[in-house]
């Protein structure tokens, strides 16, 4: 069950936007440690991957926001105004 961050920042899961971003950034780090002679190719490939991940991140946020729109309480203003609790404990 335990999930560690390794020193390089990799992570054993890749579901959420944060993890996608982390996976992208750790790939970046690993790439930059690789061969130095073709580093410009590497970085442009990395850049494309970053762009792709960025796209995925955006799509993920879009789908999250759609869900939220579908469950958000109607008449938020009135609800928030009427939400009064007595102090407890």
């Amino acid at each position: 069950m335990a999930r560690f961050i390794t020193k390089s920042g990799s992570r054993d899961q890749s579901q959420d936007s944060g993890a996608i971003w982390m996976a992208a950034s750790s790939e970046q780090k690993q790439k930059s440690k690789g061969g130095e002679d073709n580093s410009s190719d590497e970085s442009s490939e990395g850049g494309q991957k970053m762009a792709k991940k960025g796209e995925e991140l955006k799509e993920d946020m879009d789908s999250l926001m759609e869900e939220i729109d579908s469950v958000l309480e109607e008449n938020a203003e009135e609800f928030v105004k009427n939400y009064v609790q007595r102090g407890g404990e």
């Binding site: 939400y83 009064v84 007595r86």
Partner: peptide, 11 residues
């Protein structure tokens, strides 16, 4: 909290 200054707990 009710966002209006009333709080209740998690003990």
């Amino acid at each position: 909290s009710d966002q209006k200054g009333n709080s209740y707990g998690c003990h």
